[in-house]
Write a protein that binds this DNA or RNA. Structure first.
Length: 587
RNA sequence: GCGCUCGUAGCUCAAUGGAUAGAGUACUGGCCUCCGAAGCCAGGGGUUGUGGGUUCGAUCCCCGCCGAGCGCGCCA
């Protein structure tokens, strides 16, 4: 009884196929677990697939295959059904065997054999210019769960956060912090509307003052504003006004750099470290961990950006126009060519992204997964194009897009702009809803679906969140085991044949499906499948629990049922762990 | 205007090209002298946006239309 029933049936079908249609032995055998209970434990559409090439009636073919199917003690019944399906019903002991397997392997049940494939998952990668908001939360929950699922499925996973610590956005943050800081000393200049306005900037300014007094404030408002174009009327929304605001901001930044001199990198670094530290702590509390925080700046420092662009040039994919260097991405499926180096000599963000991906490939990953917000979908073509242009295998790069999480507060859409400072932070969401419910809620839907996150609902009905349903099943098993008070290791000798009612066998079938669910979730990059599976498993358990008593007087039956409950607990804990949700022993 | 991602029960969402499209929630009615009622059982709820096509078979693949979100910078 050691053989996996599914593999066993596949072999039997293979034999029948070889006998009925030897020229089609290579036809892949597809076994599915029917949704309808009346359709048995496994079903195959093999006859339907062969009907066309063999030009035969599918039901007749199914009957022929059935006739040639070798006998097996594991199969109770095999029959032709529907349009030409073959449905298999397993013998009871072939169904319950999984319980012993789960108890023996424990937390390792369902874990895929090592595939020897190195996968990098890069996710979140939010600009360190402010607190993470609820939109980042979805990327964090998805990426972390996906990484765990891949790990459990047998891949060697490396988790990475790409830090945009170079570039204009960081300069704007440093400037914003500095302006708030000098204001504390009475040096007032109009705060640029396109600067970072959140309260956290003021917080950093106060910290700066507490640690360094007026060290960075020995200047005047006139010096700060020197040579700037000034701000247009706040009401103006035309392009000219926008351009002027951007020019004003850039002038302020260059003044800050000049006035602060050696102190500017210090202020810049201070703001960066504050935000990065805050972000890291936020994610750690959320159960999201990274193997590496990769610095964009390091790509410039090590000369990799230069090398990447030079490599593209050497391969003839770069041309100069209007003083700028363009990558001919249209040759690789993009809709237009892209600038990699501006006419002022500065590299674009895209250039460092090319270098970053070159670096990823040079680190030897077999597969690279970028988890991006859906607003970045326009970048897929150019990044993949650049990878291909560098002569790298672009098919090893997958971009998983996570659709926006639109937050509803008081029935209204909540803004998520970091600049304006009006956004709901991930931290406040976690505090309101709780980490477990938060992690679960985020991955309860396909990543490519838009997500309406109703904050009021999540808060007010947090007790009705599906995560509690699963945690409750886990806690119930723990409670029963405690009342039993026996030694779990004794369960290995339980007579599983005592598990014979419909609900128990259904539960066994559910447990047996777990390894397949894990593999599917991994290959589809779809951790939500784990969440839905756990809901189903918990449902099967609650249903059984209400119908049958576990701690009965009959010692044999009791042991068998405890063994089943224990197996359910192990799989619940395994799945919850992958999703970053705690498996509570009591609640 | 062009491109990407979508459109499934009142609401939030599932469904490797398979059989009668499923859960939760909300609504209705039952179940605690009995291992945890954050639970269980039963019920009503659908032309899968729409019109075609491919297929033995389409929520899924292809095309048109309607609608939603996002993107179309020498910003990141």
């Amino acid at each position: 009884m050691s053989a996996d029933p599914k593999l066993q049936i596949e072999k039997l079908l293979q034999a029948a196929l070889a006998s009925v249609a030897p020229e089609h032995v290579s036809t892949p055998i597809h076994l599915e677990r029917p949704k309808q209970a009346g359709h048995g434990d496994f079903a195959t559409n093999l006859a339907l697939q062969l009907a066309k090439p063999l030009k035969r009636n599918p039901r007749e073919l199914a009957a022929l295959l059935l006739a040639e199917l070798p006998a097996s003690g594991q199969i109770l019944k095999a029959e032709v059904a529907g349009a030409g399906f073959i449905n298999f019903t397993l013998a009871a002991d072939a169904k319950t065997v999984v319980v012993g397997e789960v108890l023996a392997r424990g937390a390792a049940f369902g874990r895929g054999a090592s595939k020897g494939v190195k996968v990098q998952v890069e996710f979140v990668s939010a600009n360190p210019t402010g607190p993470l908001h609820v939109g980042h939360g979805r990327g964090a929950a998805y990426g972390a769960s996906l990484a765990s699922v891949l790990d459990f499925a047998g891949y060697e996973v490396f988790r990475e956060y790409y830090t945009n610590d170079a570039g204009r956005q960081m300069d704007i943050l440093a400037l914003s912090t500095w302006l708030r800081y000098v204001a504390l000393f009475g040096i007032e200049v109009d705060f640029p509307p396109n600067g970072y306005q959140g309260d956290y900037v003021l917080g950093m300014a106060r910290e700066l003052r507490a640690a360094h007094a007026d060290r960075f404030a020995r200047i005047s408002a006139a010096q700060i504003l020197e040579g700037t174009p000034g701000l247009p009327d706040a009401a103006r929304k035309d392009d000219e006004a926008k351009d002027q605001r951007e020019a004003h901001l850039d002038a302020l930044i260059s003044n800050a750099k000049r006035l602060l001199g050696q102190d500017y990198p210090w202020v810049h670094g201070f703001a960066l470290n504050e935000q990065l530290g805050d972000c890291r702590e936020d994610l750690e509390s959320f159960g999201v961990h990274f193997d590496r925080w990769f610095s964009e700046k390091s790509l410039f420092d090590t000369g990799l950006v230069d090398r990447a662009v030079a490599e593209l040039e050497a391969r003839g994919h770069v041309y100069v126009q209007d003083g700028a260097k363009w990558f001919r991405s249209t040759s690789f499926g993009d809709e237009k060519d892209r600038v990699v180096q501006r006419d002022n000599g500065q590299y674009t963000y895209f250039a460092s992204d090319i270098a970053y991906h070159l670096n990823k490939f040079e680190r030897g990953f077999d597969r690279i997964i970028d988890v991006w917000g859906a607003d970045h979908h326009g970048y897929i073509a150019r990044v993949k194009g650049a990878v291909a242009a560098l002569g790298l295998p672009a098919d090893r790069l997958d971009v998983a897009l996570v659709q926006f999480a639109v937050l509803y507060k008081n029935g209204q859409k909540a803004s998520m702009s970091t600049r304006s400072g009006e956004f709901v932070t991930l931290r406040s969401l976690r505090e309101d809803v709780g980490n477990d419910a938060c992690r679960f809620f985020y991955v309860l839907r396909k990543s490519d679906q838009h997500l309406d996150f109703d904050l009021d609902l999540a808060k007010s009905q947090s007790n009705e969140n599906p995560v509690y349903y699963i945690q409750y099943a886990h806690a119930r098993v723990c409670s029963v085991l405690q009342q039993w008070g026996g030694d779990v290791s004794d369960l290995a000798s339980a007579d599983l044949a005592r598990l014979d009612n419909e609900r128990e066998l259904a539960l066994c079938a559910r447990l047996a499906a777990y390894p397949e669910v894990v593999q599917n979730a991994a290959s589809d990059y779809a951790p939500h499948q784990i969440a839905f599976y756990l809901k189903d498993l918990a449902g099967d358990f609650h249903s059984w629990y209400n119908a049958e008593r576990i701690l009965v007087d009959d010692e044999g039956l009791k042991l068998a049922r405890i063994a089943l409950a224990c197996a359910v607990r192990a799989v619940l804990a395994s799945g919850l762990r992958m999703l970053g949700v705690s498996a509570l022993e009591s609640m």
